[in-house]
Structure formats: structure tokens, C-alpha cells
């Protein structure tokens, strides 16, 4: 559905920073983009959201290059939840979620009954309905993150892109956010792409993993294939082991192990 085809991108100081990257995001997929800081994860996500234009190659949605899609039309298919969202304005939660309806309405200043119905639905799906009449600024970061996801879902997208949605959340809220994402992918049929630093959450909830290192694809495939101790050590420079917990399915838990105090990279 969303195809990244041999994409290259760079900044003025590093013109060949990212690329080549290719991946194909299908309906029902949950992709995790992982990698060290500065590997180009967020840049790739912005390219996929159409916020940046690739220098070479292209990003296509349903076969159509994002360059040739008007931004509002694109926004009706692709939702993007940035890492930082402006929190200084004291909007009510319900209004924040309703703002997700923006790309669907070109005229009129106020939302329709339909918009309200959709907002209620997505707030129910994200367990934020009981927060609806509270100002966004009074929420905890976990609650606020669920609200931003709800707003992204109110866009009724086919593709949902999130940049480190669980960065500052406690374990409980991390799990809650990933459960919502997984449900949207499997039940809602969305294509979900999430940039994250948490390898274990990625392994547990995502069907596909892209490991980036220094702007290049280090590994791509299922969590089982990508998260091998050798690959991860070569990318992160830290030895990791995979621990399996009896009675739990999945690939186990990735844990960094101490390799001596001298090692620093």
C-alpha cells in the first residue's frame, strides 16, 4: 500500500545521509523502524509521510507518487504522529481529536455530526472517551499520547505513522499504546509504521522490522530474522542476549549484557 522505492535523502551538510531504502508496507502490517540515535529513522518516517521529498527514488501510496498528491488528499490517507506536539495551547481533548477531521472538510468552520460520531468512536477505541472534556494540558503524557493517536485515527487513514510514540511513557502506557496500534493493524486493517527505541516492544507487537544504521538498511524482515544478537551487536556496539521466558511465546527478551568497563563506542 505504501511503497518506499530506492529512496535517498540528505541534508546540506550530509547530502547522502539516508539511502538507499526500500520497503513495502501492506495493509494489516505493523512495521517497526529501529536503530541507533541519528540512524535516520525519523527522517525516513517523514519521507513516508510526504513531509520531505526524497532526492532520489520515490514514495508511493497505492501506486501513486506522493509528490503528485495534494497535501490534503495525502492527509486523508496517511496520518502522522510526530514526536513533539505543541502542548502550550489548552484545547479540550475532544477538540484535539476533532482536529484530526481537518483534511476531510474543506469548507465550514465547525465539525459535522458525522465528525463527532467518528471522534467518539476513535476515543472509545483508544480509551480516551472519559478524558473528552479535560484540557489536553492537564493529562499525563501517557494519556496525551493516546489522545494524539486518537486524533490520528480520526483522520480515518489507511496508513498510520508514529515517531517514538512511547518515548517518555511508563511500562503500562507503553503497552497500552502498542496494543492500540496492533489492534488497528489486525482488526482495523491499517498499515502501521512506528519508529521506536524499544526493541522488545517492537519484537512483541510488530510483524515486520526495519533496522537502520547510519542511514543504511542493516536488516529487514520479521523480528525473528532481524533481532539476532550478532546483527544487533554490529549496529549498536553493545552485546545483547536473547532470553526466553518459559510459557511466553515470541522471540524472547533482548537484554544488553555488560562486556567490560573499557568498551565505549
Amino acid at each position: 500500500m505504501l511503497t518506499v522505492d530506492d529512496v535517498h535523502f540528505g541534508f546540506s551538510r550530509r547530502p547522502d545521509f539516508l539511502g538507499p531504502v526500500s520497503l513495502d508496507v501492506q495493509r494489516g502490517d505493523c512495521w517497526a523502524i529501529v536503530g541507533p540515535n541519528g540512524a535516520g529513522k525519523s527522517t525516513l518516517l517523514r519521507l513516508m509521510a510526504g513531509l520531505l521529498a526524497p532526492h532520489r527514488g520515490e514514495v508511493r501510496f497505492q501506486g501513486k507518487s506522493l509528490r503528485r498528491v495534494a497535501s490534503r488528499e495525502r492527509a486523508r490517507s496517511i496520518s502522522f504522529v510526530p514526536q513533539q506536539t505543541g502542548g502550550e495551547a489548552d484545547f479540550l481533548v475532544r477538540d484535539v481529536v476533532l482536529m484530526g477531521r481537518f483534511p476531510h472538510r474543506s469548507m465550514g468552520l465547525f465539525e459535522s455530526a458525522d465528525d463527532h460520531r467518528i471522534a467518539n468512536d476513535v476515543m472509545e477505541q483508544t480509551q480516551t472517551l472519559e478524558l473528552a472534556d479535560r484540557p489536553l494540558t492537564t493529562l499525563s503524557s501517557g494519556e496525551a499520547q493516546r489522545v494524539h493517536v486518537a486524533a490520528a485515527l480520526a483522520q480515518q487513514p489507511r496508513v498510520l505513522l508514529l515517531d517514538e510514540p512511547t518515548a517518555s511513557l511508563d511500562i503500562q502506557h507503553q503497552l497500552a499504546v502498542f496494543r492500540i496500534l496492533k489492534e488497528q493493524a489486525t482488526v482495523g486493517g491499517l498499515a502501521v509504521v512506528v519508529v521506536t527505541h524499544d526493541l522488545n516492544l517492537a519484537a512483541r507487537f510488530c510483524t515486520r522490522v526495519l533496522l537502520l544504521n547510519d542511514g543504511k538498511v542493516a536488516a529487514i524482515g520479521s523480528a525473528e530474522e532481524v533481532f539476532t544478537p550478532d546483527t544487533l551487536q554490529s549496529v549498536y556496539g553493545v552485546p545483547l542476549v536473547r532470553l526466553t521466558v518459559p510459557g511466553q511465546s515470541g522471540i524472547g527478551w533482548l537484554v544488553p549484557v555488560e562486556s567490560g568497563p573499557e568498551r565505549s563506542e
Binding site: 513531509l51 492527509a75 496517511i78 510526530p82 506536539t85 495551547a89 481537518f102
Partner: peptide, 11 residues
């Protein structure tokens, strides 16, 4: 008000 990136992503 919700941020440049979010606004741009919404069209």
C-alpha cells in the same frame, strides 16, 4: 497550534 509537523501532515 499543535505543531508545524502535525499541521503539515494534516495538509
Amino acid at each position: 497550534r499543535m505543531g508545524d509537523e502535525l499541521a503539515a501532515a494534516r495538509g
